Computed example of a mutant assay.
Amino acid sequence: MDVIEKRYPYKPRLFSSIFVVLFFGVFAGFMGYFSYQNDSGLVLNGIVEMSTTGATVFYWLITVLFVAFSALGVLLAIKSVQSKAELVLTDEYVRAPKSGISKKIITVPFNDVEKVSVQAVKGTVFLNIFHRKGKFTIVSSVLPNMADFDEVKKHIMDRVRC
């Protein structure tokens, strides 16, 4: 008997990655300019007072943070274009990268599944699969669309015995 596989691309979405680059890049540019031009101190919530130098250092730290997030977006965009990662479903198991950017592939036989839960956080849905060797999470934002996520979720829920 042949094993029938359903395959879904499982990688970061290019549009989201580009949005991250642009969003944090704009703020990094703004904060960099603001840091460079700073000539006054800073009072945070009336509690923390900083001199001009302290405020400038604080602004530069925020700039670096925004640059780091923008760089992360670049890495996600590269991964989105280059990755050939897939989520594979059969009647016996689910196999996918440990995360949307990981190269490590996890295979979870449905017989090993002890519990399945669904969690939603700000529009992203997580399918948490607890199995004998640990936990594996399928994230809706790394599949092409929500319909594919719902299909994957239904397929798994129909086959687990918990």
Rank of each mutant, 00 (worst) to 15 (best):
I101T: 04
K122T: 12
L14I: 04
S99D: 07
L44G: 05
M31K: 09
K103W: 09
F30L: 13
Y36T: 10
F24N: 02
K104V: 09
G123H: 07
M50Y: 09
D39R: 11
P109T: 11
A55V: 07
G32N: 07
D112S: 15
K122C: 12
N111I: 15
I106P: 03
G73P: 06
A77Q: 08
T56C: 03
G123K: 06
V108S: 03
S83G: 07
A71T: 07
A120I: 15
K98S: 11
S102I: 03
W60P: 07
D91E: 14
E86T: 06
P109E: 10
L87I: 10
Y59Q: 13
Y36V: 11
F69V: 04
V118I: 14
D91W: 14
I62D: 04
L14K: 02
F15Q: 08
I78D: 06
T107S: 10
E49A: 12
Y93V: 02
S83F: 06
T90K: 05
V88Q: 05
K104N: 13
L76E: 03
V116S: 08
L14Y: 01
F24T: 00
M31R: 04
F34S: 08
K11S: 08
G73V: 00
V116W: 03
L65W: 14
F126K: 08
Y93M: 05
G123C: 07
V43Y: 13
N45S: 13
S40E: 13
A28T: 02
V81P: 01
T52N: 12
V118F: 14
A120V: 15
T63F: 09
E49K: 14
I18N: 00
L75W: 08
N111C: 14
L72P: 04
I47A: 12
D39N: 14
Q82G: 10
I106W: 04
L61E: 10
V113C: 05
V116Q: 11
K103R: 14
L76P: 01
F19N: 09
K11T: 05
A55P: 03
G32Y: 04
K79N: 15
Q119V: 15
G100P: 03
G46H: 09
S83W: 04
V21Q: 03
F110S: 03
I78G: 01
E86V: 08
Q82R: 15
S51A: 09
A96Y: 03
G46M: 05
L127C: 06
M31N: 09
F58P: 02
P97Y: 02
T52W: 11
I105N: 07
L72S: 07
F27G: 01
